[in-house]
Amino acid sequence: MDHRPQAWGRPRDDVYGAYDHSYLQQSGPKTATQSPVVTGTSVVAIKFKEGVVIAADNLASYGSLARFTDVKRLRTFLGTSVVGFGGDVSDMQWLDRHLKELAIDEAYDQEPTAESAEAAAKEGLNAANLYKYLQKLMYKRRNDFDPLWNQILIAGLDEDDKPFLASVDLRGTSFTSPSLATGFGAMLAQPIMRLHAATEEDAAKLTREQAVEVVKECMKVLYYRDARSLDRYSIAVVTKEGIDLKEDEQLEKQSWAFAERIKGYGTQTV
């Protein structure tokens, strides 16, 4: 399956055949069409005992051009949740502003005396609430044929302060899992994460350090194999204590030795 964001939302060629453009108007006024322009690649996230680790690199691509190299694709919400965006960057910016407005409106009536992020989360919207909201928003936009061209991961805690991780895409399709990855990460990072957290029970045994290590390993593999990726990335850990967000991390301990052994398309050895 083609995981490039440019291919999202298109009928699969192998199932439906090449798309027939013939009925579209060839002349006349240009009609505005939605398709992603500047895009971000994978977002990866995994649950652990007390919370969730989420990461995304800092690259925004314009086709195959590495256009912006300092783009922050993890956004915080109310100091209690983190949203990671893959796909179109302008739609991400729209969503970010929309969520900021929502957060400000939420804060009007919120007791500001809450002693901790934990208490604040009880009063305000938690990650599970935010997930439901974003799912309805994305599904509504797909119903209007004006989709927000993103796949989004939502990381945080639910109403019982349990780790929460979920995904919503441009069609409003939504699901949860102990580990999640968007775009290329679904193929390259998800198998690695499932080794460590195949089930909720497994994830609940992971420590914070282990989870961070797994996510960093995933970011490295993605940088090795995803051509639209970068070695600078953002990583956030969400727990009851709040969000620990680092926005300018450098991939460490890379080894490109394997690259020299790659010849041809896999079967070739000489």
Binding site: R10, R142, F145, D146, R171
Partner: peptide, 20 residues
């Protein structure tokens, strides 16, 4: 009028469906 498309009509590129 140069368009036959009704007001508010959009060019169809986005496939709103998928099979899960």
């Amino acid at each position: 009028p140069r368009t036959k498309a009704p007001e508010g009509a959009r060019e169809h590129r986005f496939d709103p469906y998928t099979d899960n």
